[in-house]
Simulated scan of single mutants.
Amino acid sequence: MPVLRHLLLGIAAVSFSYALPTAAQPAQQNGRQIERVQAPSIADQELATYRFESFTLSSEDGKRHYKIEVGIPKRPAPATGFPVIYMLDGNAALTNIDTTDLTAMDALSPTVLVAIGYDINGSHDTTARAYDYTPPVFKDGVEQKEIEVRGRIGGGAAEFLELIETRIKPEVDLRAPTDHSRQTLWGHSYGGLFTLYTLFTRPELYQRYVAGDASLWWHDGFLVTDTFTHFDRSKALGKKIRLMEGGNRSKSRSASDSRAQWSAKDIVRDLQMDGVDISYENFSELHHGQMLRASLKPALRLAATPPQ
């Protein structure tokens, strides 16, 4: 395992300059901050093992616009359907998947890839994801509206979770038969925050959760100090949960309340005490941006791994 990990780290470090820094450039589209991407994604290639379909939709209020790419194995589906991985920041995710990943997944279990992205010419719609991926905030039982962190409005995770369940998943199932007992959710940064929000509020929706460098610091660590403290740990039993961090981060970066001084490692330790199948890994050699690729690779393999 140490050899494999060092190999993965080497690949991530070398290829990161191709996948992110040289390709992503801040830009504006219709008043929104967009990070541009120049590199083609796996969905743009002719592949022996996968074909891709896409569809678009908009949020109920018409403010956010999504493009969902669905990678469907070119194999007969099992009787129970294909396992499936739902990936947040789908535009960026697809540029960090290569044919080696698809081959490795095919050897385990052909898996449907669902990249939930934004209908933009770029890797991230930073305005939209700041809303979609961050949890609603409550004070004295009342939801606080127009929560602003770092100049962006947040708090829309409950709405976005409903959109995935009621509009995205049914559309995916029309395109490829999926096994609802083998669903994985992956996210990085704010996407990692959303992944943990889903686990702590609707754990039954997925069987496997992978969060890379989750932004636990958001709104003084509200997800930990409020949502996690009310989480029924027994509902995580039987799940497989993997948390990863880079740069040897240890505590929430901007939390002023001492109760918010939690890291992903603390969450893992707390849940392990309750018998939850959850693990933590720190990639101290990698910075925050590189953790997108570093956490996505094992998530793909976890999604394809047959149940034991």
Rank of each mutant, 00 (worst) to 15 (best):
M1I: 15
V3R: 04
V3F: 11
L4C: 14
R5W: 13
H6M: 05
G10Q: 05
I11H: 06
Y18E: 12
T22V: 08
A27T: 14
Q28E: 10
Q29R: 09
G31M: 04
G31W: 07
Q33D: 12
Q33P: 01
E35A: 12
R36H: 09
V37A: 12
Q38T: 12
Q38H: 14
A39D: 13
L47C: 07
T49W: 09
Y50V: 07
R51D: 08
R51H: 12
F55K: 01
T56L: 00
S59Q: 02
G62I: 12
V70M: 00
G71T: 09
P76D: 12
P78K: 07
P78A: 11
P83Y: 07
V84L: 00
V84W: 01
L88G: 07
N91P: 00
A92L: 01
T95I: 06
T95R: 05
N96H: 15
I97M: 02
T100V: 10
D106K: 04
P110C: 07
V112W: 01
L113K: 11
V114H: 01
A115H: 13
G117M: 07
I120W: 06
I120T: 06
N121L: 07
G122E: 03
H124A: 05
R129K: 03
D132V: 14
G141E: 05
K145G: 09
E148V: 11
E148H: 15
R150H: 15
R150V: 15
R152P: 03
G155S: 05
A157F: 06
A158T: 15
E159M: 03
F160R: 00
L163S: 08
E165N: 14
E165D: 14
E165S: 14
R167K: 08
A176L: 01
A176E: 00
T178H: 05
T178V: 07
H180K: 08
H180I: 09
R182Q: 04
R182S: 02
Q183N: 11
L185P: 02
G191P: 00
G192C: 02
G192K: 03
F194Y: 05
T195Q: 01
T195Y: 02
Y197E: 00
L199H: 11
F200H: 02
E204T: 12
E204L: 03
L205Y: 10
Y206Q: 06
Q207I: 07
Y209A: 02
Y209W: 04
Y209L: 00
D213T: 11
S215K: 09
H219I: 09
D220Y: 05
D220M: 03
L223A: 08
T225W: 06
T225I: 04
T227A: 04
T227C: 01
T227L: 01
H230C: 06
D232T: 12
K235Y: 10
A236H: 04
A236S: 07
L237G: 13
G238C: 06
R242L: 11
G246S: 05
G247I: 05
S252H: 12
S254A: 14
D257L: 06
S258G: 09
R259I: 15
R259Q: 10
Q261G: 08
S263L: 03
A264S: 10
V268D: 03
R269C: 12
R269H: 13
D270E: 12
M273G: 14
V276Y: 03
S279V: 10
Y280L: 02
F283K: 02
E285H: 11
L286I: 13
H287N: 10
H288W: 02
R293F: 12
R293M: 07
K297M: 09
K297Y: 14
A299P: 00
A299C: 03
L300S: 12
R301D: 09
A304K: 02
P307T: 15
